[in-house]
């Protein structure tokens, strides 16, 4: 590595100062605050009891259990929908030519640059029974989207939409169609080609995209806040519970749930970091 000899020769006082500054900056901005969450979850202030027992109690009381259940349900459906849609649309974008293909691949990225609040607002304006474009129709068939679980799933699917696609498309483009054509010429039908050739080729990219989607789905807050009632036992997801409890001076529960969410996202982060090199390997 030419790089490392280069750095070794250049390592002077400036390098050391920059290193110390960067470590200090990251410590003050990220490391210290994140580690304090654990402290707050186990040693809450005021009348709340500290320790592991009360921490578990806070996580297992019915309101919290309901919130985690709802979050998992919503994340499950959002991940499922986005995986199926993502694989399908990626194959279409990479393997076929059709009118408007370029436009579609640009539009697909749109959800990443829209504010979560605007996502929520957009869904309300389209689907709420009081004022949405399709509100009247939906009400007439007795199907509520806004202020109920389907709305939560849609909001979550919206904000995570490009994550799977962005992972799969580059891999699909790189592997090309040789193996698929060979399989087809040997008599494999479309389904066999997909399950035996295409899917194994994009496997790691797909897993990576799904982990990213799941992490994002479990932690979505802004869009969900707009389309949900957000009351206890009534559309309160884990992230909404963190906000509600903190605002209602139940800091101990807020930090307990926050700690669980922090751990989930750090696990997702580590999984993703270790998956990445595997997929780059030839």
């Amino acid at each position: 590595m030419a790089d490392s000899t280069y750095t070794r020769r250049r390592r002077g006082p400036v390098t050391v100062v920059l290193r110390v500054l960067v470590i200090a900056y990251l410590f003050m901005l990220v490391i210290w605050p994140v580690s304090l969450v654990a402290d707050r979850a186990f040693r809450p202030a005021g009348l709340a009891e500290g320790g592991f027992g009360p921490f578990l109690e806070r996580l297992t009381e019915p309101g919290t259990v309901y919130a985690f259940n709802l979050t998992l349900t919503v994340a499950f459906w959002a991940v499922l929908i986005n995986t199926v849609f993502g694989v399908g649309i990626s194959l279409l974008l990479v393997r076929y030519r059709f009118w408007g293909r370029r436009t579609l691949s640009v539009l697909i990225d749109l959800p990443l640059s829209v504010s979560p609040v605007v996502v929520g607002l957009a869904l309300v304006l389209a689907y709420s029974s009081a004022r949405g474009w399709f509100g009247g129709f939906l009400e007439s068939i007795g199907f509520a989207v806004i202020f109920s679980t389907p709305g939560l799933v849609m909001a979550t699917a919206f904000v995570c939409l490009p994550l799977v696609i962005r992972e799969i498309v580059p891999v699909l483009e790189e592997v090309g169609t040789d193996a698929e054509e060979a399989a087809r010429s040997l008599g494999a039908n479309g389904r066999q080609t997909f399950w035996r050739i295409t899917l194994p080729a994009i496997k790691w990219a797909l897993v990576y995209g799904v982990v990213l989607t799941a992490a994002r789905a479990l932690g979505e807050f802004g869009a969900v806040k707009i389309v949900s009632q957000g009351a206890e036992f009534n559309g309160e997801t884990a992230t909404l519970l963190v906000e509600n409890r903190y605002s209602n001076f139940d800091e101990a529960s807020a930090y307990a749930v926050a700690l669980v969410l922090v751990l989930i996202s750090i696990i997702a982060l580590v999984v993703v970091t270790y998956l990445r090199p595997k997929e780059d390997r030839p």
Partner: peptide
Amino acid sequence: PTIVAGLV
């Protein structure tokens, strides 16, 4: 999650 970032 963003709300947790705020709390952190």
